[in-house]
Each structure stands twice: as structure tokens, then as C-alpha cells.
Amino acid sequence: MTDEQWIKDILSTDDEDVKLSEKQIKIVEAAIQVFSEKGFSGASTSEIAKKAGVAEGTVFRHFKTKKELLLSIVTPTLAKIVAPFIAKDFVNSVFKDDYASFEDFLKVLIKNRFEFMKKRAPVIKIFLQEIAFHPEIKEEYIDALTTHVKVRVFQLVERFKDKNEIKEYPTETIIRFMTTTVVGFLIARFLILPNNEWDDDKEIEDTIELLLYGLKK
């Protein structure tokens, strides 16, 4: 995927093409880099403008404030990235009812999210940095998760519990275990230690094994 198409993908909130000028694309791309490296408070519009190769006034012609620029990046991604389970392609490809086992479900889930985060790590980093400081981002995230994700995950976990493939923990506890384990692995892999020598296939296998069997020898 080209950088330009990647930016359009981020800013798109539906299936229609987004018509962005070359300057808008450069500004958003520069903002993603600067916000990702320095956070919202540490970033300046002058630095974003410099990296984009435009005058600072040009930034403000397209985005009235620095926060508007941040929200133009983060808010539209809730359906595609931050509430990653919401994206139609994700729901359709992961939340199916024909898994032979809980292990099969975990393999599809983790590999799907691995590839997704691999492509969009900088924007996810921005979101994680800013969610605690911008209530509107947090509210949309929580609403998106409860509306689109919870029911589907709950149903699948209940089905595997009925098949005696999962221990009789409360379903919400199981979902929390899954979420923290998978998200923790992805954050370490792409955001905290991206330059480590990772054996991705082995790490995915180990993550699945941990969820299936725990740490007991």
C-alpha cells in the first residue's frame, strides 16, 4: 500500500474514496510521524509543517487547531483500528460460527490483528498516547467496543465454554484474559520493542499456547 493510499484509508470513515489534496496528505502524514514520536503535547504545528514541506499557515487552513488535526487522524480510525473488532472485514473474517475449536479461533484472531497492527502501528501509538487526555476519543472507543464487539466475542466464548474447551471462568473474565494477552503481545512487538529480533510465528504460537494452557508446566 502506498503512503498516499494508507493516509486515505486512515481518514476514510466509509467505503467511498476520500478526495485529499496533495498538501493535506503531506500534513496528515507528517502529523502521524510527529504525534507518534513526541505525543500531542510535545508536538508543534511548526514542526509538522516543516516535515510536510508546507508553511505553518497552510496547516491551519486545512485544520483550525492542532487538536482538530489530531482528531482528524484518530477519530475516523476508531472503526478500523482502535476498536479493531468493528471493521466489517475483521468481523466477517474472524467472528464466524464454524470454528472447529477454540484454538482455531485464536489463530485467526491473533494473525488477523497482527497483520492489521503491522500496517498501522504509528496511528495506534498515537491513540494509546492520547486516549487518557481526550475524553471524546475515550467515549467513542468505549461506545464502539460495547456496540460492535462485546456481543460477538461473548457469544463465541460461551459456545466454547459449552463445548468444555474453556474453563468455567466468568465469560467477561475470559475476554479480559484474551484481550490483555493479545494486545500486550502486539504492543510489545510493534510499539515498545519493534527492533528486537522477533520470531513472529513462534511468538504467535506461544501466545496461543498461553491462552489455551496457562503457565503451568
Rank of each mutant, 00 (worst) to 15 (best):
T2A: 07
D3L: 13
D3R: 11
Q5V: 11
I10W: 09
I10P: 06
L11C: 01
T13H: 01
T13N: 13
E16G: 08
E16N: 15
D17K: 13
D17H: 14
V18E: 14
L20C: 04
S21T: 15
E22Y: 09
I25L: 13
I25N: 12
K26E: 13
V28K: 03
A30W: 01
A31K: 05
A31S: 04
Q33A: 15
F35T: 03
F35H: 08
A43H: 07
S44K: 08
S44W: 00
S46W: 00
E47C: 07
A49R: 04
K51Q: 15
A52P: 03
G53L: 08
G53H: 08
G57L: 03
T58Q: 04
V59K: 06
R61A: 15
F63G: 11
T65E: 02
K67V: 09
K67Y: 06
L70S: 02
S72H: 09
S72L: 09
I73F: 02
V74T: 08
V74P: 03
V74I: 09
A79E: 08
A79H: 12
A79C: 06
V82W: 14
V82F: 13
I86R: 12
K88A: 07
D89K: 07
N92V: 05
V94S: 13
K96Q: 08
D98M: 00
D98C: 00
A100Q: 10
D104A: 00
F105A: 02
L106M: 02
K107A: 02
V108F: 01
L109P: 03
N112Y: 15
E115K: 12
R120Y: 01
R120N: 13
P122N: 09
I124A: 11
I126W: 05
F127M: 09
L128P: 01
Q129Y: 07
A132R: 07
A132K: 11
F133E: 13
H134Q: 03
P135W: 14
P135D: 05
E139R: 07
E139N: 08
D143M: 06
A144E: 05
A144C: 00
T147V: 04
H148D: 02
Q155D: 14
L156P: 00
V157T: 04
E158C: 10
N164E: 12
E165N: 00
I166E: 08
I166M: 00
K167I: 06
T171E: 00
E172N: 05
E172L: 12
R176I: 08
R176L: 14
M178L: 12
T180F: 13
V183L: 09
G184F: 10
L186M: 03
I187T: 06
I187L: 11
I187C: 06
I192W: 04
L193T: 15
N195V: 09
D199S: 15
D199F: 08
E209N: 06
E209Y: 05
L212T: 03
Y213F: 14
G214M: 00
K217S: 07
